[in-house]
Write a protein that binds this DNA or RNA. Structure first.
Lengths: 341, 341
DNA sequence: GCAAGATGATTAAACGATTAAGCAAGGTGG
DNA sequence: CCACCTTGCTTAATCGTTTAATCATCTTGC
């Protein structure tokens, strides 16, 4: 049977109010009494219940990370999320907050937020035009969006500089002499992370005086399987391409696998750049040139931003942009003359 | 301001007890009143607070998954955990339970369990001889251990048949003509998953009439970096080995990378078998022969077992063993005559 | 026509904390 | 010496829900 504040009070010969006061450092309690109570708390290994506390105070020291399902009932394989969630968990650790992990589908209900009186939300990769987005806003609790590029004011957000990422990846390939660069992405949209990266891609092309060719942009390549299928599409292109920029590392992995099976060598025949720098890119064969974002750190930052909001601390920045970095590895190489046209 | 049971009661013109009764289906409420109350609940979008409910009932519809840190402050990169946690989350979904994710270090305190009145625990990969294990047992709440091979009776556990896995992997290599098979593992112990797999390895060797050679067993190869370093150790072996069985896929990936850098071809020069069948093994180059365990399903089973316990349902099996399966892919091949001695 | 049982509701205590308000005892100033 | 302030505690209400106990009506059987 769990030990409560009453037990402590009884043993110390004081009222529960006094115990509560030493617990919260409020009110006037003599040092002598306080010491005695603290000793008993220690001895009895008493931990106040957040349930009872939360009922009174309207806070639960619980935040929830909301991660979308890829497809109904299908789980998102991208290790990206694991790193992110690990970061969030890390970011809450020293503040005695705990993390609830919730995977939601587009039309899932969010009643768990009310039910559990969750203090705040970290939402990953939700499009601003989805019904889910509105449902989340309607909850009216502290929320941080990650990788959402929401334009509405007053929204707390954390992202990386995705436009720069798209630019750097493309620039790198251009600098190696590639001028027909396939862009493999998940879904072509007019917003969101992939859109930003697309803008970066276009910017780099424009700077190099190259035209933006929609034939080179391939959708449904965000997953490993999607990237794999993109390999075929690349090889049947009317005009040969010598490089591909895949907007996710897992997609890049799939693509390289597919190219391999079709007898194309990476990077000799075709260079590939990924995106994210998930944990194993260095160990791929060939190791993957990619745009690094510090995913773990991003999770920690989001947690920090959320907790500050919850604790009512002044939070100046409403939108945090973290840097990205080009990691050049073995999957990209100078365009060989033999390879062209 | 959150809407409470009182608001519903007032609007329906009844007492809160009546509302509570229709909420819980207990007590006698006329169909007419019940219908009216349900309508109002629907309209007002009322969700009862688990906080208040839990305070009275001693349950919170919250379970916690406890995942160990690899090192202090360092996050465990293995996507294994993500699949597992996803499985657990999936397994709780239809029962309105939520999942708290907690990464704990050996000496971390578990007070969050008491604080949040967590209903149950799913614990991954904790050794039975650790202090953490005792601390968890001392909490005296429903718990399911995964991959722990605890011999104490009365403990609920879920694992795969790791001995069989070790056996199948080794047998496969033997059947391809390899007779010096390196075993790369995390830590040599006398218990736990790796020990079981080691037993399987030994069993297969014994059946083939081969001696168990401790020089072939390499520790600290559980991580990607560990596997990478094992490559060197393998190549300097006094008597050449033509195959390696790595007890984790990420270790195998590291090993293959290492071998590659040392000019050794997989599988031509050396065959490699992994363990787990994490999501990308098929996309590795070469694709990885491995022992498949259905990690997602394991998570779901663990959740099911835990919830049954929490709900007081009769749970006959205290230890669930899930099958494993050998997935033969491209990282293993027949031993070439040129390769021996 | 009346006791007894059903039916459908209400009242009130309880869960484990917090916190405003109250109160007793000792100290201080005029 | 008395009013008043401190100090250190207690009392009691409250948070949102459940549930045992109670109660008022209405049926029903005899």
């Amino acid at each position: 049977m769990k030990i409560t504040i009453k037990d402590i009070a009884k043993e110390a010969g004081v009222s529960v109010a006094t115990v509560s006061n030493v617990l919260n450092g409020t009110g006037r309690v003599s040092e002598e009494t306080a010491k005695r109570i603290r000793r008993i708390i220690e001895e009895r290994n008493y931990v106040p219940s957040t349930l009872a506390r939360g009922l009174k105070n309207k806070n639960t020291q619980l935040i929830s990370v909301i991660v979308p399902y890829l497809k109904k009932g299908d789980f998102e394989e991208n290790p990206f999320f694991w790193q992110l969630v690990s970061g969030v968990e890390m970011g809450t650790k020293d503040q005695a907050f705990n993390v609830m992990l919730t995977r939601v589908d587009r039309d899932d209900d969010l009643s768990f937020v009310k039910r559990h009186n969750v203090d705040g939300l970290i939402v990953v990769g939700i499009n601003a035009d989805s019904a889910l987005y509105q449902n989340i806003l309607d909850l009216k609790i502290p929320t941080v969006f990650m990788d959402s590029y929401i334009e509405q004011p007053g929204i707390y957000q954390v992202h990386n500089d995705d436009l720069l990422g798209g630019y750097l990846g493309t620039k790198h390939l251009l600098s190696q002499g590639h001028d027909r660069i396939v862009l493999v992405m998940g879904r072509l949209a007019d917003r969101g992370v992939e859109y930003q990266r697309l803008l970066g891609y276009k910017k780099a092309l424009a700077e190099a005086g190259l035209a933006y060719d929609t034939h080179l942009v391939m959708e449904n390549g965000g997953s490993m399987l999607g990237g794999y299928h993109a390999a075929q599409r690349i090889t049947v292109l009317p005009e040969k391409a010598t490089a591909a920029f895949v907007l996710s590392d897992i997609g890049a992995m799939g693509l390289i696998k597919g190219l391999n099976e079709m007898g194309k060598k990476v990077p000799e025949d075709i260079s590939v750049v990924g995106y994210d720098d998930i944990f194993y890119t260095e160990y791929m064969i060939p190791s993957l040139t990619t745009i690094r974002q510090d995913i773990f750190k991003k999770g920690m930052m989001a947690a920090g931003l959320l907790l500050a909001q919850i604790n009512g601390e002044p939070v100046p920045e409403q939108s945090i942009f973290l840097p990205v970095e080009l990691k050049v590895r073995a999957s990209t190489a100078k365009r060989l003359e033999k390879g062209c046209e």
